[in-house]
């Protein structure tokens, strides 16, 4: 579904990403892990077009997405969440969801004359978004301002908003960071349900238990390069991965 080859990105001479290659398979849940500063979020920014790569290829369903603007990439069917929750705080929960999809009423001419067709579309979208809110269990908050919700509820709105985009490839930046165990189970269920519904998920996460639980494939990134790819179990045993996380002090011990 997503194929990345020899990706490179420099920031003021420092190679944040270098020669990074990996694939994300159709309908999989894949984790992107690695120590702090390994370049995980940079990879997300590159895929979604927020920053331009210096070298390398990125293909989505066979066609190159290099050089495309963020909104164009979103319209291809790739969407993302951010590390910290980023809702539109002064809009209602329902409005937050309604923004997720293209809406013919967003065209100025349609907005001015508001034909029946647009009104029907608005009603249909509202119904669909209410269903999504029901799915994540916060339909009673639909008309509250997003900023008035609790942290956990806001996470759910963010996930519901991702669902509302109808994207096929969903990039989640730390979906369970800072949420309580109950909410974590809830989010895990939601992700599994998404997979059943045919979505592909690529997620960044530091919580290894969550990764072991949810993902069938793990990509380990260190210094901007993938150093291991495999099932969670394989990756956890990989020597290079242990080095990246713990340093190569153990090597020295064995060596002498």
């Amino acid at each position: 579904m997503l194929r990345i080859r020899h990706l490179e990105k420099r920031f003021a001479g420092i190679r944040a990403i270098q020669d990074c290659s990996f694939d994300v398979e159709d309908n999989s849940i894949t984790a992107l892990i690695g120590p702090n500063g390994a370049g995980k979020t940079t990879v997300f920014n590159l895929i979604t077009g927020f920053i331009r790569q210096d070298k390398g290829k990125m293909r989505y369903n066979g066609s190159s997405i290099i050089g495309m603007k963020p909104h164009a990439i979103t319209n291809l069917g790739i969407t993302r969440t951010f590390q910290l929750i980023r809702l539109f705080p002064k809009l209602t929960v329902l409005e937050n969801l309604l923004l997720a999809e293209h809406h013919s009423g967003e065209n100025l001419i349609n907005a001015i004359f508001r034909p029946q067709r647009v009104k029907r579309e608005e009603r249909k979208k509202r119904r669909r978004c209410m269903l999504l809110l029901k799915l994540v269990g916060i339909e009673d908050k639909a008309d509250s301002l997003a900023e008035n919700l609790s942290y956990g509820q806001q996470k759910l709105v963010e996930i519901a908003r991702v669902l509302a985009t109808k994207a096929d490839l969903i990039l989640l930046d730390e979906p369970v960071a800072g949420v309580n165990p109950k909410m974590r189970r809830h989010i895990k269920d939601v992700l599994k349900r998404l997979q059943k519904a045919g979505k592909t998920i690529l997620l960044i996460e530091h919580d290894m238990n969550f990764v072991m639980d949810v993902c069938e494939k793990v990509i380990v990134l260190d210094h901007g390069k993938e150093i291991a790819v495999g099932t969670p179990k394989q990756v956890m045993k990989d020597k290079r991965v242990l080095e990246a996380y713990l340093g190569n002090g153990s090597d020295g011990l064995v060596g002498t």
Binding site: F50, T74, T79, F82, R86, L87, H102, R161
Partner: peptide
Amino acid sequence: EDELVAKSLG
């Protein structure tokens, strides 16, 4: 409210 997110929503 948040231009970056608006962009990310297409």
